[in-house]
Amino acid sequence: MQHLLSTEQMGRSEAESLLDDADGFLEVLDRPIPKVPALRGRTVATLFFEPSTRTRMSFERAAKALSADTLSFSPSGSSVSKGESLKDTVLTVQAMGADLAVVRHKAVGAPWRVAEWAQMRVVNGGDGAHQHPTQALLDALTIRRSLGGLDGLRIGIIGDIRYSRVARSNCFLFPTLGADVTLIAPPTLLPVDTEGWPVRHSSDLDAEIGSLDVVYLLRVQTERGGASVFPSLSEYVRRYGLTQRRFGMLKDEAVVLHPGPMNRGVEVSDVVADDPRCLVLDQVANGVAVRMAVLFRLLGGTSG
């Protein structure tokens, strides 16, 4: 594996082997000294052109737990505000000695560009509304550890799918691992054309909820200005929010995932968010292990 850019072409055995490694790293993270020297001397650069404290922290925690050094780049107050191009920024970071770049960028495809320009390994830390592969892997790991595996599970992904890289990553990885995925959203938040996606879609959450094993809630982008995509938040909550009433309609063993940060009272009610079947904190912990697995896979072998 040279880069991790997308879940679209990821095969089942490749995904499962990363999840197996992540299981091993969870054990490492559970030790009194949760750190191994596996990537001593390697340098991981986090290039976050779009702010995301959580994802950046998770990658940095993963890199440090593997004893890699980290370089951190953020555009505010940097050369980007002076008009430096993405290409020049990337080549500069590479010249400082980075072996791998985690790239988060508003523009779709930016990590692919970086992989073309640089000799570094590249991990897509989220590009536009396109892909966020480590999020999908940590979600799969969380489901696997909670329910034993994804084969035959019914997973509903609910909310702002059209503008969600998390949804696009999970839409491909979950079916690869054997799950049956339904996208559930108002028509204005479903992708315009899902031809060729291995998923079904619906705009009626109440009709679907009783059959789901996993409810995957997406963050409603209340901060997105301009585009008016649904009439009001209260209408959204009424039709698509995981309220206590809907939580009661779930199967007993069903679990709830959310990529965070949660809007309590919008896509998920406060009480549901604190229920033990809501696995958001497991997702966060698993995220570090998954990212360790990815970094180790990309940097732990013969340099290419």
């Binding site: 197996d20 490694d21 299981d23 191994v36 596996a38 180790f296 940097l299």
Partner: peptide
Amino acid sequence: DVALYRDDVGRNPTPNVGST
């Protein structure tokens, strides 16, 4: 499992992570 403590990381293909 000693795979993560080896001094030859990078000289061979990435090993699978075993469990301790």
